[in-house]
């Protein structure tokens, strides 16, 4: 399986993401600059964290108009797995690939620490490797991760099991219903504030994030079996 790590001016978790795929997961991966106009050769699209365009105006607001985003939309519509982490999640929200928006953290502080996440749905291409309601440890690092959506959207997210992760116990940023990660309607686009790419080896303090990437690959292999 071949992954693309999209690099915007100001991305800073692109190297971690690349490392997670190449060294921890053992799959093919390439950096793809934001001006790229074709993603056809990639099977999975990863939008890393950081501060694209300096977070000017709003996090993700400017990045979402990059050339590559039209291709990300195309990949999402084609059913390819698209994962946006932190700033990547914010870009997916701004692009309208996921519903809702981010506000400043409730405490107004940038938070950077490990948090407990509860797996709310393990029937997705991103979470099939987890147990249902399992608690995993993955770090967050953000100033604007306070998720918001209107009541109607929230009801839809719940009804369709599109909330994959919630913060376990204490709510670190004020997110609506402790939401940490959601998918689109089709289930192939995941946005999450915590950084699974920083939790792929015990040496880093946790390897709980690796299962997200392993789930993506397992699902992809199962749906791309060569039937000769």
């Amino acid at each position: 399986m071949k992954f693309a790590v999209i690099v915007f001016p100001g991305s800073n978790c692109d190297v971690d993401m690349y490392h997670a795929i190449k060294d921890a997961l053992g799959e093919e991966v390439e950096y793809v600059w934001h001006s790229t106009e074709n993603l056809d050769q990639y099977d999975g699209i990863l939008l890393p964290g950081g501060f694209s365009y300096g977070d000017y105006l709003r996090s993700g607001a400017i990045a979402r108009f990059s050339n590559v985003m039209a291709e990300v939309v195309k990949a999402a519509q084609a059913g390819k797995p698209v994962l946006g982490v932190c700033n990547g999640f914010q870009i997916l929200l701004e692009a309208g690939l996921l519903p809702g928006a981010m506000r400043r953290n409730e405490g107004l502080k940038f938070i950077c620490r490990n948090v407990g996440l509860k797996v709310e749905n393990n029937q997705s291409m991103f979470t099939s490797g987890y147990e249902l309601h399992e608690t995993v440890t993955i770090p967050v690092a953000h100033g604007e991760g306070n998720y918001y959506c209107d009541a109607e959207t929230l009801a839809e997210l719940k009804r369709d099991n599109r909330i994959l992760f919630t913060y376990d116990g204490e709510n670190p940023n004020g997110s609506l219903e402790q939401i940490a990660g959601i998918t689109n309607e089709q289930g192939n686009v995941l946005g999450m504030m915590p950084h699974p790419e920083r939790a792929v080896d015990s040496l880093l303090g946790s390897k709980d994030g690796l299962k997200i990437f392993q789930s993506i690959v397992k699902n992809w292999r199962e749906s791309h079996v060569i039937t000769a």
């Binding site: 607001a61 400017i62 928006a101």
Partner: peptide
């Protein structure tokens, strides 16, 4: 399109 995010 750009200046405001009308969701919030």
């Amino acid at each position: 399109k750009l200046l405001a995010n009308t969701v919030i």
